[in-house]
């Protein structure tokens, strides 16, 4: 991949630091005192998920990473890998548990997900913001209680555990926000 200088840094710029792909989440130009200028950044290491404060000398060149976010259809899981397909080229990629992370709780076959590819291989998966999941296990529902007061845990068919209102029963289909794992409504 190419290189850029600190002048090209923007939020979202993808870099290679310590051999690992990173994304810039904050970038500030400073010229303290009468001395040299710096770019103070916060970078998110995409493989490990850690965020690090990193300062570059102004004008320094930095290696960029071939990281792209692409919309793909989730197709299936074979017990070890999760498979995604590019709907335009029908090309498939396989993502391991590390790349899929918590998204595995929200993956439904045929759903469109955003897959982050580094040099063509998946390193992250973002499910749709809202998914419909079916309850496979929870305490029996309290008939007539639709007030929403109180909650209980419910296990979904994907394995996700969601806090739900007391009236929810096994077999109900629920709309869940994948960004915070919260119950939204009955589907």
């Amino acid at each position: 991949m190419g290189t850029i200088t600190t002048n090209d840094l923007r939020n979202g710029t993808k870099l290679i630091l310590d051999g690992e792909p990173c994304t810039v989440v904050d970038n500030q130009f400073v010229r303290p005192g009468k001395g040299q200028a710096f770019s103070k950044t916060k970078v998110l290491y995409l493989l490990t998920g850690r965020t690090v404060e990193k300062t570059f000398k102004s004008g320094e060149s930095i290696e960029t990473a071939d990281v792209i976010d692409t919309d793909m259809d989730y197709i299936y899981n074979d017990g070890e890998f999760w498979y995604f397909m590019d709907p335009n080229t029908f090309e498939q990629v396989q993502a391991d548990a590390n790349a899929v992370g918590d998204a595995k709780n929200y993956l439904i076959e045929q759903d469109k997900c955003q897959v982050t590819l580094w040099n063509g291989s998946p390193i992250g998966v973002t499910p749709p913001n809202f998914v419909i999941l079916e309850v496979t296990d929870t305490d029996p529902g309290l008939r007539g209680d639709t007030s929403g007061g109180g909650s209980k845990p419910a296990t979904m068919h994907t394995g996700a555990v969601v806090k739900v209102p007391l009236f929810v029963n096994i077999g109900d289909k629920l709309k869940v926000d994948t960004r915070n794992g919260e119950y939204v409504s009955r589907a």
Partner: peptide, 14 residues
């Protein structure tokens, strides 16, 4: 956090 190497005393102070 992570800083460039080869900084001088005045750079650190700044």
């Amino acid at each position: 956090g992570d800083l460039p190497e080869d900084l001088e005393s005045d750079d650190y102070l700044a």
